[in-house]
Simulated assay, not measured.
Amino acid sequence: MMGYNNYSISRVLYGSLTKHSRTPKQNNATKVLLSLKRQISSQSFYEKYFGSLNKLERIRDLFDKDVKLENVAKDLLPYSEDRYRGIHVVIDREKKCNPKYHNHMLKILDDSIAEWKLKGKTAVWIHVPIEKSAIIPSILYHGFKFHHAEDEYSSLSLWLHQDVETRIPIAASHQVGVGGCCIDDSGRMLVIQEKRRPVKVWKIPGGFSYLGENFDNTAKREVYEETGIETEYQSIIGFRQKHNFPGAFGKSDLYVICRLTPITFKIRPCPREVQECKWIDIEELSNRDDLTPLTAGVVKVALHGWKNGFKEIDIVTSLVKETDDLLYHRFVNNL
């Protein structure tokens, strides 16, 4: 191949080159390639004449370096693109991780970043499965930073425009918990004492919300897991936000209080978490000093609703039209 002139290469690339063959003295490979790029765009063409895309790379140096081949002729990292023009690369957990792979990864990453910058992409996210953690130093070498991590992978990010302040969002700033304020028809509230607390105080049952779990389902699940009581969701009656929450790794905590009504009444406390569980009258609870600060606030709100009607305190839920989104708001007629 190296012994061929540019005209011969063009004939290999495009058969008879009918219109190019009229001027065989014109051997400017750049013009030939640009013409071919306008006429040929499918991957099948390259594979037909070269067997694989990698073979096409061998002749790239024969052409003017300013000519940019189509993506199909480049050895770039496979990626997807989000609506903010961000690039997402998921490292294949099946490929063997060795020094040769590291070197190959560095070269491809260099080419890929350069290409994405030229195309005006905003940022690159590389998601690394835990099995491929050994390549992370190679990724950091290119200026990537850790963004977040889960059980099975870590994600690193790179903002591509040094002249513009980064718009990469920070990792999740809050953890979300939900508490169940369960009140029966006689005005009793379901409260528990936890085993883990050194001082025994009463609180409403609750816990962390799972990914993809709505507030109402979290409240019902947590109450059932901790007390054995099955409940029906009614409304939200408040939120608590707390920063630098203990055990949240420097993040903030958002705690949603749901009002529930019981379907069953037989208490079966969780033996691992709950020391004691009771139904206690709201009036009595409002006069006790052995409640957690949050529960004391919830009791005051619940007592007002019990005496004056829960419409006074309820935040209800409606479905946003043409979406699956839930809107939480005070009651509005004909919404």
Rank of each mutant, 00 (worst) to 15 (best):
M2G: 15
S8E: 09
I9Q: 07
S10L: 14
S10P: 12
R11P: 05
Y14D: 12
G15N: 03
L17A: 11
L17C: 15
S21G: 14
K25Q: 12
K25N: 10
N27E: 07
K31Y: 13
V32P: 12
L34D: 07
S35H: 15
K37F: 06
R38C: 15
Q39K: 10
Q39H: 12
I40S: 08
S42C: 12
Q43V: 11
Q43I: 13
S44Q: 08
F45W: 14
F63Q: 08
N71F: 05
A73T: 07
K74R: 08
D75W: 10
D75H: 03
P78Q: 09
Y79V: 06
Y79M: 07
R83K: 15
Y84T: 15
Y84K: 10
I87G: 03
D92A: 06
C97M: 11
C97D: 08
Y101I: 12
I108P: 08
L109W: 09
L109E: 00
I113H: 03
I113Q: 03
W116A: 07
L118H: 09
G120R: 07
A123Y: 09
S133P: 10
I136R: 01
S138V: 13
I139H: 04
Y141H: 13
Y141P: 11
H147L: 04
E152T: 14
E152W: 11
S155C: 04
H161M: 13
Q162Y: 15
Q162G: 11
E165A: 11
A171R: 05
Q175W: 04
Q175D: 15
V176K: 12
G177N: 07
C181H: 06
C181W: 02
D184E: 00
D185F: 09
M189A: 06
L190K: 00
V191I: 05
V191F: 05
V199I: 04
K200N: 05
V201E: 00
K203R: 11
I204P: 01
L211Q: 10
F215C: 07
F215Q: 09
K220R: 10
R221Y: 01
Y224W: 09
T227Y: 02
E230M: 08
E232R: 04
Y233D: 03
F239R: 14
R240H: 07
Q241V: 14
K242D: 13
H243M: 06
G247V: 00
Y255G: 04
T261C: 03
P262W: 03
P262Y: 06
I263S: 05
I263V: 10
K266L: 08
R268G: 13
R272D: 10
E273Y: 02
Q275N: 10
D281L: 12
D290E: 05
D290L: 01
T295L: 09
G297A: 12
V301M: 01
A302K: 02
G305D: 03
G309H: 01
K311F: 07
I313S: 00
V316S: 04
S318C: 10
L319C: 11
T323M: 04
D325Y: 12
H329V: 05
V332T: 06
N333K: 14
L335N: 11
